[in-house]
Computed example of a mutant assay.
Amino acid sequence: MKHCLVVDDSRVIRKVARRILEDLGFSIGEAEDGLKALEACRERMPDAVLLDWNMPVMDGMEFLHALREEAADKMPTVVFCTTENDMAHITQAIQAGADEYIMKPFDKEIVEAKLQEVGLI
């Protein structure tokens, strides 16, 4: 079973994402900020990370840069899932190493399509 880490400071978003991803056959881990997500990755590297941009302590971009440094050889698929929807943010995320980008609000069909595009399902 593939493992996905859902990183978002909103408990509601984490809960919605968990339901969608579990329905798609993933086991789920959760973190409410980038620092806790990095710690979770050190304990168990996920196959995928569903990542919010704006979070306290360590935001999504800081997390992505730190993860790229630490896990270059075992890099999970990273899908940003955020309200930041302008081309500058999308370009910045992809250039930093994100594999895909989902804009909030999202639903099961969007998540499933993006995970199919990156070869996780």
Rank of each mutant, 00 (worst) to 15 (best):
H65K: 01
V49H: 08
D59L: 04
A72S: 09
A98S: 05
V79A: 05
V111F: 14
I90E: 11
N54T: 08
E112W: 03
I94Q: 13
E32C: 09
A48N: 15
D9T: 08
D52E: 07
E32G: 09
Q92A: 13
L67H: 00
F106T: 13
T83S: 14
A17L: 01
A88M: 15
I110Y: 01
G29C: 01
K74E: 15
L120S: 10
E30Q: 02
A72R: 00
A17K: 01
I13P: 05
L50G: 04
E70L: 10
Q95A: 08
M45L: 10
A88L: 13
A31G: 06
D99I: 09
C81R: 04
I28V: 04
W53S: 01
T83E: 14
D99C: 13
D86Q: 10
A88F: 15
A71Q: 05
V79L: 09
T91E: 15
E30S: 05
T82Q: 01
A17R: 03
C81T: 07
E100R: 12
L120V: 06
D47A: 05
M87N: 10
I110R: 01
H89F: 15
C41G: 00
N54K: 11
I94P: 10
Q92V: 08
A48G: 13
H65P: 00
Q116F: 10
D9L: 04
